[in-house]
Design a protein around this nucleic acid. Structure first.
Lengths: 233, 233
DNA sequence: GTTTTGGTGTGACGCGCATCACAAGGACGC
DNA sequence: GCGTCCTTGTGATGCGCGTCACACCAAAAC
């Protein structure tokens, strides 16, 4: 393991929400123990149910987190980008992976092993507290999602999903992007519905002038109307 | 604050999953700062949306955690007993309460304030790690619940709920109790369905000899059949 | 006593959405 | 050229379950 590698990994770790607060030296120590792993688009990073002994921070590229629902539906839970961390649940409590993760694009991950991280959790109170904050965020999001899935109609879920992906929900609307490249099947998977009904809903909105569907792109024309459909509270 | 009180609170804290691992002295310190609060059955302990600066451990009695779904339905998320901890999410990240909590019976709670607990999280690595484990458990349960709500039919959700409450699911089946005192409306709230359909489902099962409904009690006659309906994996 | 309240049991009706079925248009390799 | 694969688009059909409606019974309140 050469020094340049370590510096690179340290740089990547420092960009992650969880590790950014740590001292430079601690980051270096962690980086030295971390592995840098590359995956090609489509590769399986890990499977639901496998035992997890590591967590990953995304250095480059993006990954898709999905899980097998009881009725054999495969639901997309999240799309994660560079800087995001995943796999920490299984690592922290030593349990099974609760979801599948696959590389959406070619990507580089900084992999930290359980046996390497645990000592730091006990020795670095800041890291532990930060990890707790991360878990709390996850828990809140997860609960919100649950409520959505359970009690919102399909159009409302679609609207919320579009707004969330485009960055209009729980992000500042300033740098929201209006052109999305999503297949209708992908949307269906994310909201737990069928492709057909997603289609019907989107076409209705297109006729109403709220969105536009042009050569594979989904363009949001009227954010406010969409937010109305989302029943934004 | 007299010494007997402190000892009592320390005793109660030590029974909780989270604090049991701490040294006797640390427990005493925490106990000294904690308040012992009593609530009468039906009292509101806190409301969804309020800012939370404290967490509670149940010393006596039981509480019901519920939340208002987007469509104004009130869903029962959990029923907690003595020894359980709740309210820790809002305390840990300083956010809003994500659910309502009401006293189901008369109960006594040991209340710990955010400003008192935070120093211990940083100073007591064991506590931080234990708290992380607790959050991980919550997250897993929450995710499972989400999947159930989203993709299981109503009868399957009822079956799972009955098994969980009776202790047959994710608990050892040895000390499972077969007689439950639940109103059908309560079941409906827990699974996010209507009372009428819960009734229809239960009566079907009664005719099939899987359960029995006698003077307000719900008696599980055939656990295995019920597990089949739950699609137990 | 009577009235009110809360749980229970059932039928009728309709909406939302999954399912099935099929057509049409591009992108790709042969 | 032609086949195949994926995405999109739309109609028909059916099931689950929410909603409304009403009847029954017991316990509590008057």
């Amino acid at each position: 393991m050469n020094n340049a590698d370590t510096i690179q990994k340290q740089d990547l770790l420092s960009k992650s929400f969880v590790f950014g607060i740590l001292d430079h030296e601690i980051q270096l120590e962690l980086a030295e123990k971390a592995r840098l792993v590359r995956y090609s688009a489509g590769d399986t990073i890990f499977d639901q149910g496998s035992t997890g002994q590591s967590m990953m921070a995304i250095a480059k590229g993006s990954v898709r987190v999905s899980a097998l629902a009881p009725t054999a539906r495969n639901v997309v839970l999240a799309d994660l980008q560079a800087g995001d961390v995943f796999g920490e649940i299984a690592l922290l409590d030593g349990g099974e992976r609760s979801a599948d993760v696959r590389a959406s694009t070619n990507c580089e991950l900084v992999v930290l092993e359980r046996r390497h991280v645990l000592p730091y959790l006990k020795g670095q109170p800041d890291l532990a507290v930060k990890m707790i904050t991360l878990l709390c965020q996850r828990l809140r999001k997860s609960d919100d999602r649950m409520m959505e899935f359970a009690f919102l109609q399909l159009p409302e879920r679609i609207a919320r999903t579009l707004l969330r992906i485009s960055g209009g929900l729980d992000g500042d609307p300033v740098n929201a992007k209006d052109r999305l490249s999503l297949s209708q099947s992908e949307i269906a998977d994310m909201i737990g519905g069928t492709r057909e009904n997603v289609n019907r809903c989107l076409r209705r909105w297109q006729k109403a002038g709220i969105i536009d569907l042009r050569d594979g792109w989904l363009i949001i024309l009227d954010r406010n109307k969409l937010a109305d459909f989302a029943g934004d509270t």
